[in-house]
Simulated assay, not measured.
Amino acid sequence: MMKRILIVDDHAVVRFGLRQFLADTGDLEITAEAASGAEALALVHKGDWDLVLLDMALPDLNGLEVLKRIKRVRPEMPVLIFSMFSEAEFAIPALDAGASGYLNKDSPPHQMLTAIRTVVDGARYVSPTLAEKLLSGLASAGPRPPHEALSKREMEVLLLLSKGVSLTKIGETLFVSVKTVSTYRSRILEKLGVQSNAELTRYVMEHKLD
């Protein structure tokens, strides 16, 4: 029986390549595509798939947030993360949030098929590399992270920024001016040693702050 897959990736060439790749398998088929987190969530609400193949870097919501929302409405639907982000940094947070596996986009074709079929069959997939790190304890947390230096309000702003919320909307939510939010953002960037909202999002995902 053909397994139906929803792919969520903002790069059309990636979606096309995977569609062509899986078309030759005979048992796996991409039957729906989404280019953003919002599109993915809309499809998940109204359709049913044997697997969601989800990228971490999306234009509106980060992949971890999309994963959490999918699991809230469809906890039984398997989600396999398919990302360029470092497995060592992001696989554990993704698995903790309910992903059935984590697959790097640089993986060879046979490993992609193994991961997809493993998850579709109801099991969890962990790459040999990550499994080795988990067994050796190298995936455990390191020294005290920079975000522990943030105030409670700075942490609130950080989490909202990581979800793609605008400065204006954050100001309305927290009942402060846009200028104040901008000041918070500058402090957060400095304390965390990052330079952009994309890096803030990556930091939040890496440290499982949300």
Score class of each variant (00 low, 15 high):
1 M>D: 14
1 M>P: 13
5 I>K: 07
15 R>S: 05
22 L>T: 05
23 A>N: 08
23 A>M: 12
25 T>F: 11
31 T>S: 14
33 E>L: 11
35 A>N: 07
36 S>D: 12
36 S>Q: 11
37 G>L: 10
39 E>W: 06
39 E>D: 15
44 V>Y: 12
45 H>D: 15
47 G>N: 14
55 D>Q: 06
61 L>V: 01
62 N>Y: 02
65 E>C: 01
66 V>W: 04
68 K>F: 00
70 I>N: 08
70 I>Y: 10
72 R>M: 05
78 P>H: 11
80 L>R: 08
81 I>Q: 00
84 M>P: 00
90 F>V: 01
93 P>L: 07
95 L>S: 04
99 A>I: 03
99 A>F: 03
101 G>A: 10
101 G>P: 06
107 S>A: 14
107 S>Q: 06
109 P>S: 13
109 P>F: 00
110 H>M: 05
110 H>D: 15
111 Q>G: 03
113 L>D: 10
113 L>R: 11
117 R>V: 02
118 T>I: 03
119 V>C: 06
121 D>Y: 03
124 R>T: 10
139 A>P: 02
145 P>A: 15
146 P>R: 13
148 E>R: 07
149 A>H: 12
149 A>K: 15
149 A>Q: 15
151 S>T: 15
153 R>M: 13
158 L>R: 00
161 L>S: 03
162 S>W: 03
164 G>F: 03
169 K>W: 01
170 I>T: 02
171 G>K: 05
172 E>A: 15
174 L>Q: 05
174 L>S: 07
174 L>W: 11
176 V>E: 10
185 R>A: 00
188 I>D: 04
189 L>F: 13
189 L>R: 03
191 K>S: 10
195 Q>R: 14
198 A>L: 11
199 E>F: 04
209 L>Q: 09
